[in-house]
Nucleic acid binder design. Sequence first.
DNA 1: GTGCACTGTGACACTTTTATTAAAACGATT
DNA 2: AATCGTTTTAATAAAAGTGTCACAGTGCAC
Lengths: 229, 229
Amino acid sequence: MSRTVLVVEDEAPIREMLKFVLEQSGFNIIEAEDYDIAQEKICEPYPDLILLDWMLPGGSGVQLAKSLKQHEFTRDIPVIMLTARGEEEDKIRGLDAGADDYVTKPFSPKELIARIKAVMRRVTPTSNEEPIEFNGLKLEPVSHRVMANEEPLDMGPTEFKLLHFFMTHPERVYSRELLLDNVWGTNVYVEDRTVDVHIRRLRKAISRHGHDAMIQTVRGAGYRFSTKL
Amino acid sequence: MSRTVLVVEDEAPIREMLKFVLEQSGFNIIEAEDYDIAQEKICEPYPDLILLDWMLPGGSGVQLAKSLKQHEFTRDIPVIMLTARGEEEDKIRGLDAGADDYVTKPFSPKELIARIKAVMRRVTPTSNEEPIEFNGLKLEPVSHRVMANEEPLDMGPTEFKLLHFFMTHPERVYSRELLLDNVWGTNVYVEDRTVDVHIRRLRKAISRHGHDAMIQTVRGAGYRFSTKL
DNA sequence: GTGCACTGTGACACTTTTATTAAAACGATT
DNA sequence: AATCGTTTTAATAAAAGTGTCACAGTGCAC
């Protein structure tokens, strides 16, 4: 899950430094020197977070922050403001303008990363976390656990994801490739047949009460999760 | 559920004003003019939040804030600092001293109330005072104690908070980052792996009667407190 | 029934993640 | 400043999970 951060900062060296630090931590970076460029670049790759310098030529950071919070499509992108020490007033105005957090320059890379992650966590809350159950096989996303008739089962992360996918997409055949895309993630290079092995492991893991019968092989097509025999 | 706020402010008119504003919003108010009186009054009705003026005769506000954060029983009470405009440096020191937020005088009543509520929201989930028990492992928030089958256990403060968090949020996986957010606090920047060490110490501390089995590793996801094996 | 193409399985070399330990850093106390 | 208890970091060991392969089964078409 690679996240994209838009860095809006006029001073090239600082921008470079930010880019380095953030990429080091696995973020994708889009850069913008000023208000206008930021406006342009914001639309297309749609960043997960914006790092915004308070001091910008051609339109202040606050101005940008405000305009972001106005538009529907950008309203929900979290913003972290970069302010120089001593511009305390600005911080307050920045927060008023809709910034989610601020970091004082000079900052430690560690703090920056931590704040970015914290803000992202706050903003990206719940996907579908409801437990799913079929024939006594229950998967609880919240506790990250699978139970067969109330009895907890043990399986690896990949098997869990695989089962999760199957249970959320039952009664439908998926080719090995499709499974790789959906469970492993796109652009992952693994052998098709690897799926077989994980299917095997998953079946083994849920076999105690015979739930492995729901993981069905469809010869020549792939696999299917189905409650019907 | 009426919340109590301790107002520590030396200037009577401002204190009156604060009292008025806060009571208007449904809070209970305890007043204190200075450091010493605050120290006295803090114990008994146990406020839900402290509103603390930076400028106090007989001991500065920061001093009080620090001493509050030192003592176990008052450590978890959130503090909002009141600072005069222009004391920018103080704000920073105030936050360092452990204040949860600050408000600049003069402030709008609306802003003050909003910040108080925000801070309380952040902090509240932790403040359940009922003892919790799972499988003979009992945690008593009030006495700040953990017992395994009536036998008191020994652990450090962080382990206690960690266990407290786990026991109030059982059957749920938490990533290291989430644990740091919830147990250490939002603006603390430590390595993810630090959690491992505390998990280890916590497990060790509660292992005498095998309760460590409830602290479960969920590979690739984090840790979970669960009564099920 | 035979052969062919597809799937199942166990083993293994390799990665990634977690546990454990020891040492450094920190903070409060004296 | 020295000390004690705790937290954090860093280093290393241990464990768990992964992807591939070779070969064993299976089912299907003929």
